[in-house]
Design a binder for these strands. Structure first.
Lengths: 351, 351
DNA sequence: TTGAAAGCGCTAACAG
DNA sequence: CTGTTAGCGCTTTCAA
């Protein structure tokens, strides 16, 4: 008791709601009500509380609040990597959207490894996140089971609904790839190679390959096994993959890449082989990150709705967390961005 | 009481330590001890607890744990931006280091804005982070005051100790810039321009400018106001800045850039003006991110100890959090990376 | 409009 | 080696 009556002297101690209550001459309940604007509080009281808060520099204790509310105001996102800018814009937008509602974003990376992703899901859940954002819609059911067991709302980005019964906010990778391929065909290209990210656990990569393949088939061509090289999303691997494709005889006149990083690698390979882009070879990327215009020639690519996905993910999740009602999926458009790396084979022939 | 005796029927409820205790036939204290390996527990008991945990799918409640321990096992980092890869590798390394000790990393961005950074510090503190990582060592004292008031350990990355009394883990930006400049001078360049990030609230940028300036002065040259252009760290602004420098008569034979993104922009400007790099113009960057070798010609640049800073930040902070003892600062070496974008003016003259 | 008091789930003395 | 118990700081009935 004697201990309780003099804690104010302990100036180094982080102030609690009780300190505020004491200083304002009210109860802790009133402080809480006043701060959270829940329940009516007389204006004078509110003012008193406010000034006590200011004087003490009070901030609600996170643990206490989380415990009492059974809510952490935290959302977790697991992205494959932070090493390139692919997910940065979406994450940034997500963070801003959440922050506007006083919700913090926890970002983890999976390095494109399913086990690592599941580990991270577990970690986020253990930290009591109120919602989760994942990239892509194909993963082991055990991952979804974790989320469902806790009843934590989650949305999947970067993919279209697919057959998946989950909330998806993204775009149709396959359709986008079909569109790209069709445009390349229209330019007169017939020998087309593709460099893809590893499709094994990556629905986006897989869908893009399918799209290219379908478009070719629909036009009486085909994406033969040797026309497709899979590798990790790095400049060096993209370069090596392009080298491989360009060694073939006759070599492709166009290479479609699973993302802009791979495409930049392909550009480097072309240069190493003394090939001129787009004169000897056309290259198209995917994502439209800043890198696409940093290289030369600038990359024709597919612009993906980075920010809109991030914003929508935040909004959907926040609403879901509050009202408990699962939102519908959302599919956004992509846009083909024409740039110098894609050349017109017909024109050239006419040269 | 009647309520308390049947909660197990409530299968949807997230299990608590009490459920585990009940199922294992022990007390909650024993469960806690067993799980946290604090205090001796008989092997058989431990096994029983373990199986109960597994059966219920129990995970400690974050709020409860945070409240009891007065520790969230969370560290926050505030970086200027996620849009380019500059900080990605360090953050990744930091995250891995922390994760190994079951500590989660919270990443926020400040967009290079001091007010925004302070806001984020406040937010992190409100979330009860146990430690904080910031970039750079110059900021308003109010920012440091926030940290100190809460007594939260924090480290500053990317800079050298400077005059700052805080724990710094980084490198000497000025020395690195001097080194770069000296090398360029050795190559015979005499008209040297510089593109810098905005130095106003950015000690790294400022130190790099100082370094270049000092090296020039020491060699009987100078960095005149019109030889230096400041802009934001984007490709487009870097390009515009380079345009400005290259319009001068006589134009510089070398441009030193505050980072690789700016350098990539300079490369684009050179190309737009029909200048060949390094024949007509040399360009050097800073950071050595992947972009440096994605562009053509590949950028000579300064390799910064990204990963080592991230790892050290994690280790220092963890130790500090645990034992309460402030660690010393750490200054790491940088390395000049010679690549094709830097040409030899003497040789050329000799051609 | 306000206060008293009962938890939220967990840990750490303290006893045994 | 294990159980009892007293909080950690906050929110939220329930009364007044």
């Amino acid at each position: 008791m004697a201990h309780k009556s003099t804690p104010a002297s302990d100036s180094r101690r982080v102030p609690t709601i009780e300190d505020v209550a004491r200083l304002a001459g009210v109860s802790t309940a009133t402080v809480s009500r006043s701060l959270n604007a829940t329940g009516r509080v007389r204006e004078a009281t509110r003012k008193a509380v406010e000034s006590a808060v200011r004087e003490l520099g009070y901030t609600p204790n996170f643990g206490g609040q989380a415990l009492a509310l059974n809510r952490t105001n935290t959302v977790g996102a697991i992205i494959p990597t932070m090493e390139n800018a692919i997910f940065a814009r979406a994450i940034q937008a997500l963070q801003e959207t959440l922050a506007a509602q006083k919700v913090t974003l926890l970002v983890a990376t999976s390095q494109y490894l399913p086990e690592r992703e599941e580990e991270q899901i577990r970690a986020l859940l253990a930290r009591g996140v109120d919602g989760v954002v994942l990239i892509g819609n194909r993963r082991a059911s055990s991952a979804y089971a974790l989320l469902n067991a806790r009843g934590v709302p989650f949305v999947l980005l970067w993919s279209a609904p697919d057959s998946s019964p989950f909330v998806t906010i993204g775009f149709d990778n396959s359709a986008a790839a079909i569109d790209v391929t069709t445009r390349i065909l229209k330019k007169g290209h017939r020998r087309i190679g593709m460099i893809s990210g590893l499709t094994a656990h990556n629905d986006r990569a897989d869908d893009r390959v399918r799209g290219v393949s379908k478009a070719l088939t629909d036009n009486g061509l085909e994406l033969a096994p040797q026309d497709l090289v899979e590798c990790r999303y790095s400049l060096a691997e993209g370069e090596a993959a392009a080298m491989q494709l360009l060694q073939r005889q006759p070599r492709p006149t166009a290479i479609i890449c699973g993302n802009d990083v791979l495409a930049a690698g392909a550009l480097r390979a072309a240069r190493a082989l003394g090939l001129v882009v787009p004169g000897d070879l056309s290259v198209v990327g995917f994502d439209d990150i800043e890198l696409a215009t940093a290289v030369f020639p600038p990359l024709a690519t597919v612009r993906v709705p980075h920010r809109r996905m991030g914003v929508a993910a935040g909004e959907y999740l926040l609403r879901w967390i509050v009202d408990g009602k699962r939102p519908p999926s959302l599919t956004l458009p992509t846009e083909f961005i024409e740039r110098a790396s894609l050349g017109n084979l017909c024109d050239e022939a006419a040269d």
